[in-house]
Amino acid sequence: METKKLLSDGKRIASQYTTWVTFVGLLLLLSILTKGNALKWNSIRNLLIAESVRSFAALGVGMIIITKGIDLSIGYVVCLTASVAASFAQNPDYSSAIYAGQSFPLFVPIVAAVAAGGLFGLFNGYLIAYGKLPPFIATLGSMSIAKGLQLIYTKAAVVGSLNQNFKNISQGSVGPVPNLIIYVIIAAFIVWVFLRHTRQGTHFYAIGGNSQAARVSGINVERDLMMVYFYAGLLYGIAGTLLASRLGLANSLTANGMELDAIAAVTVGGVSQSGGVGTVSGMMIGVFTMGLINYGMSFLGVDSYYQQLVKGFIIIVAVYFDMKKYARRN
């Protein structure tokens, strides 16, 4: 018995750090392959910027997966929130602006997008927690709803010509450090505090680990489940705002497929699909590992077809180890 304990503890510790080891290994590999070129400050800055928006989506879906849920609606909800944010930040003299002739203070697009994301989160959460819909199905439905709303709201047109103040939210920087990176650090810190140091955060792990036991332990499983989707929705709202600000536009293609990127990233980062396991540091490492792969292959000029192939394999391998690690215990 003792040995088994030792053994499994050893494995657990090793597996805890596999994400780190993978990340560092990739970093080394890339620095060797590019003779260090890929890891200059400019390159790293590019990488961090590129992954910043996805980090928000990953933090959101990471929390959801900890509660043993899933969210397929991320891409289109971010697309919708980006469009909402952009629509309130268009130059008033732009003739095809959604609110042509009107200009709004800077907080309006941000608040509107975050509210839109939050509402979608509540909708998802309500369906899943109280309506008892399987998360996969509920968010599949709301994904389509978000896409529909986005097309209706923008009349399928590009929401462009955004004002410079709004664009500066993402495009600006503090000294050499781009704003986006600062936002990511703040968001990751807040989510970390939440998951690690609050009651509700702890409850998320309990619900994901064993929802029946959580209920018996006096946890309001329904309310907490609804809230996790709500919080994720808020993060998607921020993601949408930052994305629109960074691209200077939003259209119906914005953030398409982000759900898969985000889910893949947190899975690579050790957030288990079996629920109840995952850390903020893991999620962030996952995002940057996937980013590094993307970035490295694009840096090395690997054909995009092969990039897809490599990414696919990495996701499968990550999930394979995840399942091996947790699903077959006992």
Partner: peptide
């Protein structure tokens, strides 16, 4: 860019 504006901007940076 595989249909993604953000990816295209990242590729330009790279």
């Amino acid at each position: 860019a595989q249909g993604d504006v953000a990816r295209q901007l990242d590729q330009l940076n790279t």
